[in-house]
Design a protein around this nucleic acid. Structure first.
Lengths: 220, 220
DNA sequence: GTCTATAACGGGATAGAC
DNA sequence: GTCTATCCCGTTATAGAC
């Protein structure tokens, strides 16, 4: 198929992306060396710079590769919901699921075994690198804004400021789930047990929907 | 007061802790060099090794210094609630506030201006270092277990497994708040506005309480 | 207890052969 | 496109003077 000969496979770039996604997700960006990545990928150190240019550029490539389809999926689902609702109020659970479910889809579809891709996406929210924070704003800005509007339409009785805060709580729950779901948690004897994707989504949506609907005033 | 002479102040150790707390919290452990810390503290590089032994030991010192009183405060509040309740069911909002409020107290009491101490505590939950993860289990194990029991006592009508998951959601919301509260968020035009401590606590508790009480079944 | 100087190492990046 | 070899820098940590 290809013109010139090479080592054994032509997908060095893909192998690098896969290895980097896993290691960045598990160890974080700063702790992961290019040497560790290329070793895991079975390619040469220089390959990173040839294919991507720098360590940061590799990270950026990983980010957009996952975030773009993730957010496209979210917006497509939201389009459907908004079209079905016409001018009426939006169904809250549906909106929440449109935001949450694609992230879990990301886990299941790609690497059935490993914890890989979603963990990295979630980790982005806590990585201090400026590049990361800038890309977060770029990639999630539009989705966030549109979902915020949708949530307000779904909750006309809740003050807009409160919806804004609760939107932040939703992001918290989602990123926490994605980044830590695979490991045994801090508190022993939790016995959360392994749950399938659909159950986890339902759990999150149920919890979040109730929180979003709560009357704002109530003190204890 | 002191016997022998020295540079200008005797609180090198304290200055190191303060600088490290801020920098680790803002930049993360791996990205923060000892040079940056000692520069910010106005002390010599070697002082870190003299007073603490290593970079990791400095981190550990920071962790226990904050986590211990934080969790003691939580448990004390829980004691009061349990004593008042006798054998009856526990009041959910009170239990949640006993868990959430001490963390915010941590912010307000110590450094009224800066974002410092709580941000680091929250960051611990996403730092990949094994030391950090081990200390998390050690320091938060007891508190987590006791609050989990208390939450189940407060919610006899909710399945124990669900309470376990929702406990995890609560940690998500809290850490997210503590680590990111200071900065403008990803979605522009949110207009969350600056909120005082009491309001933020009330917001979180209201949201969480409703989520915890939600009937488990409901699909959309 | 505090400093300077330096050791010992690993990191990202690049040049140039193939 | 892929490799080897190497540059150059910043890092933690330590030894030893003061």
């Amino acid at each position: 198929m290809v013109t010139a000969g090479r080592t054994a496979n032509g997908d060095t770039k893909e192998r690098l992306l896969a290895a980097a996604e896993r290691l960045f997700g598990e160890e974080g960006f700063a702790r992961t060396s290019l040497r560790a990545i290329t070793l895991a990928a079975g390619v040469n150190v220089a390959a990173v710079h040839y294919h991507f240019g720098s360590k940061e550029a590799l990270l950026a490539a990983l980010f957009t590769r996952r975030a773009a389809p993730l957010n496209a999926d979210r917006l497509a689902r939201l389009d459907v919901i908004e079209a079905a609702a016409g001018d009426g109020a939006l169904p809250l659970e549906a909106v929440l699921e449109a935001f949450v479910a694609p992230a879990f889809r990301l886990i299941a579809e790609l690497d059935p075994a490993g914890p890989s891709p979603a963990q990295l996406i979630a980790r982005f929210f806590s990585e201090p690198e400026e590049v990361v924070q800038r890309m977060l704003r770029e990639q999630f800005g539009e989705v966030g804004a549109r979902f915020l509007v949708a949530l307000r339409r779904a909750l006309p009785e809740v003050a807009a400021v409160e919806v804004g805060w609760r939107f932040e709580f939703m992001i918290a729950v989602l990123t926490h789930l994605l980044s830590r779901m695979h490991l045994l948690e801090i508190v022993p004897g939790r016995a959360l047990g392994p749950a399938d994707e659909a159950t986890t989504i339902r759990r999150a949506v149920t919890f979040l929907a109730a929180g979003f609907r709560a009357p704002a005033g109530g003190a204890a």
